[in-house]
Simulated scan of single mutants.
Amino acid sequence: MLFYQFARSVVASVLKPLYRIKVSGLEHFPKEGGVLLCTNHIDNFDPPVVGITSPRMVHFMAKEELFKVPVLGNTVRNLGAFPVKRGMSDREALRSGLKILKDGGVLGLFPEGTRSKNGELGKGLAGAGFFALRSQAHVVPCAIIGPYKPLQPLRVVYGEPLNLTKLKEQKASAEMVTAVIMESISDLLIKNGRQPLPLDKS
């Protein structure tokens, strides 16, 4: 935890002035309990930006190749990340994510699974819905509004936790729940001046 706080302060001292990061909606972020934090993905810097703006430590999934790199692997692990194979179908990674939520931690996800090539919001993968349905965690949508250009404002907006009670009672599929999560991220983008392309509902 001490290493995380140190790294967070160092990264924040660089990225916050460089991108003039503005944060809103922190009052919506649960102070305790498991949190599934779902964010759009527009740049490689998204994980550290979420990490330095979130009021709580965020655990991210990271591609397993990173953990095989000397020094970098241990550093990423010490920052709270855990490995996942491509496609988010790695059972061990799913178990690790569920444990983080059960233990009251914050699991950060980019439901799209990969960076958007055009900056617009894409279709989310079922992994986000899986975690939402299999846990009692608060589900918090988050929108990162670029561009990532030096000295141009970058906004991070945290939304209110989603009420998924009815969907759970109706035994909705993971895909359906992910679609709801993506709609909430889309709403944040629209309300804050960013017009995303219509979500792919196929």
Results as ranks from 00 to 15, higher is better:
3 F>K: 10
4 Y>V: 11
9 S>V: 04
11 V>Y: 12
11 V>W: 02
14 V>H: 03
15 L>P: 09
16 K>S: 09
20 R>G: 07
20 R>S: 00
23 V>K: 08
24 S>D: 13
25 G>A: 10
26 L>C: 12
26 L>W: 01
27 E>K: 15
27 E>Y: 08
27 E>C: 05
30 P>W: 06
30 P>Q: 05
30 P>I: 03
32 E>V: 08
37 L>A: 06
41 H>Y: 13
42 I>V: 12
42 I>K: 08
42 I>R: 14
46 D>L: 08
46 D>T: 11
47 P>Y: 06
52 I>R: 01
52 I>H: 02
55 P>F: 08
57 M>T: 11
57 M>P: 13
58 V>R: 14
59 H>P: 04
59 H>W: 00
61 M>V: 08
63 K>N: 03
64 E>G: 01
67 F>P: 01
67 F>C: 11
70 P>W: 07
70 P>N: 05
76 V>K: 10
80 G>R: 14
81 A>I: 01
83 P>N: 04
83 P>H: 03
86 R>E: 06
87 G>V: 02
91 R>G: 01
93 A>S: 15
97 G>I: 07
97 G>N: 04
99 K>S: 07
99 K>F: 04
100 I>W: 07
100 I>R: 13
100 I>D: 09
102 K>C: 04
103 D>P: 12
106 V>Q: 07
106 V>R: 09
115 R>I: 01
117 K>R: 09
120 E>A: 09
137 A>S: 14
140 V>E: 10
141 P>I: 07
144 I>P: 10
146 G>A: 14
146 G>T: 01
150 P>S: 13
154 L>P: 08
161 P>S: 01
166 K>I: 11
167 L>T: 02
167 L>P: 04
171 K>T: 05
177 V>A: 00
177 V>N: 09
180 V>H: 10
182 M>G: 12
184 S>A: 15
185 I>E: 11
187 D>A: 10
192 N>M: 10
194 R>G: 00
195 Q>P: 02
196 P>M: 14
197 L>S: 11
198 P>H: 11
201 K>D: 02
202 S>V: 12
202 S>D: 13
